[in-house]
């Protein structure tokens, strides 16, 4: 009993945990001082992958809570057809692909950021979504449909803030000029499409190959039978 207590105590006093808490708290600085914040996040090692992943999970959880508990006046979700894991995957997969596409492009055009840096910056940029939309789920249950303006404005503010942070984040991580960042954002989207295309081609080839072997097996099985 006392042993586990002391162990947990020592865990919360450990340097690792302190670093994690500090990097979590650092998000507040990033939100309001994005230029400084993102620079120090990666170049001064103020952020951590653990904290970034935590924020990514919070984002996914926010999305799920939003789908489940937002009042029906403000959201159109046929809950009977919704699969939570599908929803999470549909956010997580493009997000990671976007990071990958950005990394594969910028690494060729003297971007300073490593993959982990890009991932970290993108995750920290998602914080406003969680911060604003989670309380909005509660708010949606205490306002009526004709007061929706309040709700929609805050929704768009959160999205705009996220986009702004992604832009600044990538700019600081790669040490790019704003113009170059814009060009590479567009290129990243194109890269994303190419990756998806290649994945689809690969999958269809795979299924063709598989069906070939399956039919081969069947043919043999029938002959022998």
């Amino acid at each position: 009993m006392s042993a586990t207590k002391s162990a947990s105590k020592s865990f919360f006093r450990s340097e690792k945990w302190q670093k994690y808490i500090a990097s979590m708290k650092y998000a507040k600085y990033v939100l309001f001082h994005p230029f400084d914040g993102f620079w120090d996040l990666v170049h001064e090692r103020r952020g951590s992958i653990a904290a970034a992943t935590t924020y990514l999970f919070l984002f996914l959880i926010t999305r799920v809570i939003q789908l489940m508990f937002t009042n029906f006046q403000f959201i159109n979700v046929p809950l009977q057809y919704i699969n939570i894991f599908e929803q999470c995957a549909s956010l997580l997969f493009p997000f990671l692909l976007l990071c990958l596409a950005n990394w594969s492009l910028t690494t060729l055009f003297d971007g300073k950021g490593r993959f982990s840096d890009i991932y970290m910056a993108m995750c920290y940029a998602l914080v406003p979504y969680t911060l604003i939309q989670l309380p909005l789920v509660f708010v949606s249950n205490i306002i009526a449909f004709d007061e929706a303006a309040f709700y929609t404005v805050l929704m768009s503010v959160s999205t705009a803030w996220c986009v702004f942070l992604v832009f600044i984040g990538l700019m600081q991580v790669h040490d790019y000029t704003p113009g170059k960042t814009v060009i590479f954002l567009i290129a990243t989207v194109l890269g994303l499409l190419i990756i998806i295309f290649l994945l689809l081609v690969f999958l269809s080839l795979l299924s063709d190959a598989l069906s070939y072997f399956i039919s081969l097996y069947r043919e043999i099985a029938f002959r022998l039978y």
């Binding site: 029906f72 006046q73 205490i142 009526a144 449909f145 004709d146 007061e147």
Partner: peptide, 18 residues
């Protein structure tokens, strides 16, 4: 109203209820 997904009427009765 919720069963019929009627937002306008739901909003109206919700305001009165609130």
């Amino acid at each position: 109203f919720e069963m019929a997904h009627d937002r306008d009427n739901y909003g109206r009765s919700f305001r009165l209820y609130r």
